[in-house]
Design a protein around this nucleic acid. Sequence first.
DNA 1: TTGTAGGCGTTATCAG
DNA 2: CTGATAACGCCTACAA
Lengths: 328, 328
Amino acid sequence: MPQKMDIKSFAEAIGVSAATVSRAFGGAGRISEETRKKVLEAAEKLGYHASFHAKNLGSRHGGSIAFFYPELYTDEPDYFISEIVLGINRTLNHDRLFKVTPFDEHDERLLDSAREQMLDGRVSGAIIISGTAGAASLISLARKARIPYVVIGKSQPDSTNTVDYDNEYGATLAGRYFRETGRKSPAYISGHLDRPKKRGFAAGFGIKESQLLEIQGGAGFKYGYQAAEEIFHNHHETDCILCANDIIAIGFIKHASELGLKIPQDIAVIGFDDIAIAKNYIPAISTVSLHLRQLGVSAGEMLEAQFSGKNKISNEVVRCDLIIREST
Amino acid sequence: MPQKMDIKSFAEAIGVSAATVSRAFGGAGRISEETRKKVLEAAEKLGYHASFHAKNLGSRHGGSIAFFYPELYTDEPDYFISEIVLGINRTLNHDRLFKVTPFDEHDERLLDSAREQMLDGRVSGAIIISGTAGAASLISLARKARIPYVVIGKSQPDSTNTVDYDNEYGATLAGRYFRETGRKSPAYISGHLDRPKKRGFAAGFGIKESQLLEIQGGAGFKYGYQAAEEIFHNHHETDCILCANDIIAIGFIKHASELGLKIPQDIAVIGFDDIAIAKNYIPAISTVSLHLRQLGVSAGEMLEAQFSGKNKISNEVVRCDLIIREST
DNA sequence: TTGTAGGCGTTATCAG
DNA sequence: CTGATAACGCCTACAA
């Protein structure tokens, strides 16, 4: 097997110069179609592969596209992120490598590693999920380093190139729906960084935020499970619930039904995000769709646009929708 | 903002040589603790960051660890893979970047891109999900290029460094369970590359493989949904089902219950994989656990071992377990 | 312990 | 259209 073969020895072997080989690969540069073909075929035969690092170094640019997101879930996959990735993958020009890079807010070492990636030249474009301190620092790094980037979620007030979603509005829809369907006693199970949802939910239902029963949730089925426990024991009157995400909703419904509660008769529940399982659950879960896939698609497109030169300031907010299914 | 700053100008700025700077960062090389500290602090202050590509080129090694897996699911996240990634992430030394690289068997361009990554020096270690032609080619490339790698799943007979699982045995457990619980008419809903499961299932149930009703499934909820349709209309006698994966099981149960079938009274169903949702579904899904997370952990450890010099031949097969919950 | 020189494999520049 | 030759930014002997 051809252990290693650099451009020079390869060029020599087929009787051309290194420069010619380089040109044969790089779409640019004038070179006769004949020689290009000859070089390419020879490369195939002899097993020549240009070094990735040398190429990037030589061309003084390069690197791949990174997707930075906070690692919230500890024992389960992050379905929220997975859906977004689906969208990004569909959009991004696949010749650039797409790598996902979780950073843990609580692991300074991981965060540093993420920052380093942003700065050491290996990243040529970034998509960043906002909302955490780590994300903020990554965003500011990208800006300093003049690396094209797109932020998903709320960003600095002055910021550009963000694809946002309106949590608060979505929650409002949920609150309003509950009120209009005659529910009396709402509760909200929180997740992470979800203040706007609570606010919107209260507003939609027509009460003050402070009057809304809030139960601490988090990232994972168990939080919904625990919340059901809590409500079953201490808040019998509750007859409708908004969960900060679908996973919590699932955990809640699962345990509530174990406790003998009927969904939606006894308690109606609305989730958030509309991950794939939501509509396949039993009962199918009513939820505020964030159109996660679309979020990813838009972010990808916005990034591509920046690469294509259109560096114009742009923002987009993907619409939320309340999707009524069987859990309400 | 310090736009760009190379090692030379940085070194000059703080009054040392480039070599010293290099040594200050690279843990190796003798250098006084005092100078190192001085350099590191200065770097922080002046915002110097070594170029990733130059670093790798200079040290003639480097690159990150790649996780190659076939992209099967088109419209939903791949929960199977997600769980494995969870395991890998927990194990792998986080200073090496971990990037996930899906390759599509049907997209020659994507596959080529994956192969290129393997060969152009950017990958220093690989974890590959076996079972497809693309995977086989990646494995052989890794071997040729002498890149440490671990295969998850069945590999070439002579192969080493694989973490395997025993689908067939797991399916046998399912078949046996159905037989022992008095089920009469089994059916198998297939997925991808799952022949062993069918064989094992038939054997466990005590019938010939050819006598086992098989329904074409695939990757996605809808296949389970369609299978339910098919069975409801054309195979009333069926009273127990093994699904090639949990997603299919969910789709099946969802639609079966819509059609008025009672699970498990009318039809008992067992899934495969034990992804996180399985136990949180209603009914909780009985399933053959592949211990996906553990698979990832083992693969990660095996790869680390190779980096640590222990290049000894090793194989491991993670045990399958039948987990009985509410769907049987 | 630190500095100097050469090399890593490409791309870019400038002739020819 | 093709071929030398100088960057690219860092690492690694080797010498001081």
